[in-house]
Design a protein around this nucleic acid. Structure first.
Lengths: 131, 131
DNA sequence: CACGAAATTAGAATTAATCTAAATCTTGAC
DNA sequence: GTCAAGATTTAGATTAATTCTAATTTCGTG
């Protein structure tokens, strides 16, 4: 369990009651929540938090490298506390987004892309999770 | 240059003046346009086309397998007339989305995903195009 | 404690997309 | 050819995600 207060400080972010609540709502959350979901969760954590503050804080957290956004769901941005390289699997039945460890997959053939300066990449997989 | 009328018929779609204009606007378009961009283009092609009709027609075209949607751009769906498997490169400077041929890249290690039933996947790359 | 900067806020504004219900075409049966 | 049934189109209302605005509150420092 990450300590939200320490985490904010480590990223050079002035901690406030609202930011701590928002950080707590997102830092250990592996479900790839939307801003709206984070708002609901943060409001449960005692602080008075407005929608605008959630959007402001998430934008700041991303700028400071504490979180990343992922463009994976139609119509809405999701937030990802996993800032390491990784891939994503999307369950087509439930919409659940699951992290896939970076070293599970290898992408070969990037020498074909010499016209491109690649900053980052990931594999996006869609299907169903077995059980 | 694909013939829009024939293309509609081949996909079991009743052709109308509006649908032909919309199909022409999207079928040879490799820029991954949004519905709004397709509306503007279709309206130039002489037919009277409303926004609702563009959304209706694009939804139908996707259902019939004539187009695919891609979730690549923040906040909006883009349409892709390339229904073959392929990857995407996104130029971070301009936002331009470029198709990368399927066989330029190989993804290895899918045996690590035996818990998952994979229907499709693609590599999404971000960076800058050199010139 | 006072002051200026930073943070928060409610609500308005914007944008993409969907919905609604009425108007307008087609098409096939006769 | 005529007409009803069904398909298509439409303007505008609605919804949802996000950003903006401008006023208020809180904070850190001297």
């Amino acid at each position: 369990m990450k300590n939200a207060l320490t985490f904010l400080q480590d990223h050079g972010i002035q901690p406030t009651a609202q930011r701590v609540a928002i950080a707590e709502a997102v830092l250990d959350n592996t479900t790839h929540p939307t801003a709206e979901e984070i708002l609901v969760d943060a409001q449960k954590r005692c602080a008075i938090v407005s929608r605008a503050t959630v959007y402001n804080a998430l934008k700041l957290f991303v700028e400071k490298g504490m979180l990343r956004t992922q463009i994976i769901r139609e119509g809405t941005v999701v937030y990802d506390p996993n800032t390491q390289n990784h891939h994503h699997f999307i369950d087509e039945e439930s919409g659940t987004i699951i992290d896939i460890p970076w070293d599970w997959l290898k992408v070969q053939g990037k020498q074909n892309l010499e016209e491109y300066d690649i900053h980052e990449y990931q594999v996006i997989l869609r299907g169903r999770k077995k059980r």
